[in-house]
Amino acid sequence: MAASMGALKKDLRKQIRRIMSDLPGATIETQTANAVKTLLAMPEYRSAKRISVYLSMPSGEISTSSIVRDALEQNKRVFVPYTYQLKGPKDGQPKSVMDMVELKSFPDYEGMESDKWGIPTPSEASITERANSFGGTGLTNGEVAESADPANGLDMIIMPGMAFDANFGRLGHGKGFYDYFLQRCHQSSGMPFRGKTSCIQFLAPGQSVPMDSTDYRLDALILGNGEVRRAQA
């Protein structure tokens, strides 16, 4: 079953890549403007004090730079992904994990170098001085604090993905970083509000994202036309 699930996800990723490769840049710009306007007006965003924002690739997905700017201007604490290899992973841990580390300012964001996918990424040298969403500074090595401090954690996660469906299923890029990160959130300070701004990746009626027990569904999805859809509580 696991192999079959993996094959289904792989095939869907190929399909989405073909669609996205033909999508004009102007279309993504328009959908970015629509989706971001809706997100910034959402009560969950407006009330959030600590948020996580994925940093977008230069093409092929909705840009998050204006979200980062607005959140910092609103004096929210903004945490962004940093992936790294574990030193001696334990049973049940992947070889590589993702922590969320804090941005200090918008110039801090603008000064980041891009990784091999063109995504702005905090430098390795800066990590020890950055607050971690799980508490403290630096990396966690994939661990979760035994006694979670309610002052830590996140109020909202703005997540990336390749495809989404009407049941709030999400297809990631295949690395499993968010799946394991959300598992740790659940074990630590509780599950934050999970949302995504999307465009062409919203699947047609009758199509669904292949999901298993390790996958988490979204709480809300914003389409490229600015429409927001919410999962039932």
Rank of each mutant, 00 (worst) to 15 (best):
G169S: 09
S59F: 14
D70M: 05
A163K: 07
G111N: 04
P89Y: 02
L39Q: 05
T121H: 08
R13M: 04
D22G: 07
I28P: 05
G138Q: 04
L182T: 06
T64L: 01
Q15P: 00
D179Q: 01
T140L: 09
S188G: 13
R50P: 00
N34D: 03
I16V: 12
G161V: 12
R130S: 08
G153P: 09
S65V: 11
F181R: 06
Q232N: 10
T140Y: 12
Y216G: 09
A48K: 01
E73I: 03
A71F: 00
S105Y: 08
I19D: 05
P210C: 09
F202K: 12
H186C: 10
S213R: 14
S133Y: 13
L221E: 14
D155T: 04
K95C: 03
P24Q: 00
V80Y: 04
I28D: 13
P89H: 01
P120N: 03
A233L: 15
G118Q: 02
E124I: 02
K196T: 15
N152W: 08
G153E: 07
E110Y: 05
G111E: 00
R217C: 10
D179H: 05
R69H: 15
A2N: 13
S213G: 13
Q232G: 07
Y84E: 03
G161C: 04
W117R: 04
V36L: 00
V53P: 00
A163W: 11
D155K: 01
T27S: 09
A166M: 08
L154N: 05
M57T: 08
Q31M: 11
I67S: 01
D155Y: 02
P192N: 10
H186E: 15
I28G: 10
K49L: 08
R229G: 03
E29F: 13
V144G: 01
A2C: 09
R170I: 13
R229Y: 15
T128R: 15
H173M: 11
I157Y: 07
S59K: 13
D115P: 01
V78Y: 01
L55P: 00
G136F: 13
S189I: 12
L12G: 06
F193M: 10
I157V: 14
E61C: 01
E110W: 03
C199Y: 06
L154W: 04
M5S: 10
R170H: 12
P81F: 04
K37W: 02
M98V: 02
